[in-house]
Amino acid sequence: LALKENKKVNIKYSGEIRTINPYLLKVASGEDRSYIFSYCEKNEDYRNYRVANIENISLSKHDIEFKNLEYISCIDKNFDPFLSFGKNISIKINQEGQKLFERVILNRPKVLEKNGDIWILECTNRLAKIYFPQFLSNVEILEPLDLREWFKKELRKSLERYL
């Protein structure tokens, strides 16, 4: 109804009330989960909210504000729950990692470029933190550096636990 009438929506999500400008209702590729792509006024950023996790929803009397129609159109064409469009990471992946990449399809980043064992992926840091821990030594995060440092720190903590 909000999309049809171009109205903002108030939602309760993770225990917090947020006012959102809903733009799209999408199902992620390879999943059966529905998401509302929107602009969240509380976070002042674009967000996806999993419909099943919305605790409460009410229609606002205020009209939707369209912040960036070009970006919204790109998300519509390149939808993923992590909003990876335009965000890239670089990895070094061995043969075992490549086989695993072909098998693990849930939340798999889009491959933009392959140059031997160096790949460029369309992927947010958040998605990489969910997807790549299962690869262990079969993938090395090269860039961005803050993501690489996060993996190093987490792997050190895991190693300490096992030693």
Rank of each mutant, 00 (worst) to 15 (best):
L1N: 06
K92G: 03
I89D: 15
L127P: 02
S38A: 15
E140K: 11
R161Q: 07
A128R: 07
L121T: 11
Y35V: 09
S29I: 08
Y49V: 03
L155W: 08
E65P: 00
D80M: 12
F66C: 06
I72T: 06
I120H: 02
K110M: 01
E154M: 15
N68Y: 03
I72E: 06
L121M: 05
K110I: 08
S158V: 02
L112A: 04
Y162H: 04
K92M: 12
N107P: 00
D32Q: 08
L69T: 09
N94M: 11
I130Y: 02
L121R: 10
E160Q: 08
N138Y: 05
T124D: 01
A2T: 06
A128H: 07
N94S: 13
D146I: 09
Y131V: 03
T124S: 13
R47F: 04
S60C: 13
N53S: 14
F132P: 01
R108Q: 13
K26A: 01
F82I: 11
S58D: 01
L1E: 09
N138D: 11
L163G: 08
G97Y: 12
L3A: 09
K42D: 07
E113C: 01
Y46S: 04
I93Y: 10
K129C: 02
T124A: 02
I141T: 07
S58E: 13
L155I: 06
R18S: 04
E160C: 06
C40L: 12
R33F: 05
E154S: 12
F132L: 07
N78H: 14
R161V: 00
P144F: 13
C74A: 14
P109D: 07
Q95P: 09
N21I: 06
S73Y: 10
S90D: 14
W119T: 08
R50G: 07
N48D: 08
S73M: 10
S29D: 10
E149L: 12
D45R: 04
F132S: 02
E31H: 11
L106N: 05
L142R: 14
W150Y: 15
N125Y: 04
L112C: 10
G30M: 01
S84H: 11
S84V: 13
F135G: 02
D45Q: 11
H62C: 06
N6C: 03
E44F: 06
I93V: 15
G116Q: 01
K4L: 08
L25R: 01
N53K: 15
K87G: 10
A28W: 00
E65T: 13
I130T: 07
L142T: 04
L1M: 13
E160A: 02
P22H: 02
P81A: 15
L145Q: 10
N10W: 09
W119C: 06
S34T: 13
H62I: 05
K8I: 02
G15P: 09
E55Y: 01
Y49R: 03
N48G: 03
Q98H: 11
E96S: 15
S29Y: 07
E160K: 09
Y23P: 05
K157Y: 05
K67L: 08
I89E: 14
L147R: 05
R161A: 05
V111L: 07
I120Q: 12
E96G: 15
R103L: 13
C123L: 04
T124F: 00
V27R: 08
L25K: 04
L142E: 10
T124G: 01
L147E: 03
F101K: 05
I75W: 09
V104N: 12
Y23L: 03
P133W: 02
S60N: 10
Y39T: 08
N6I: 00
E31R: 12
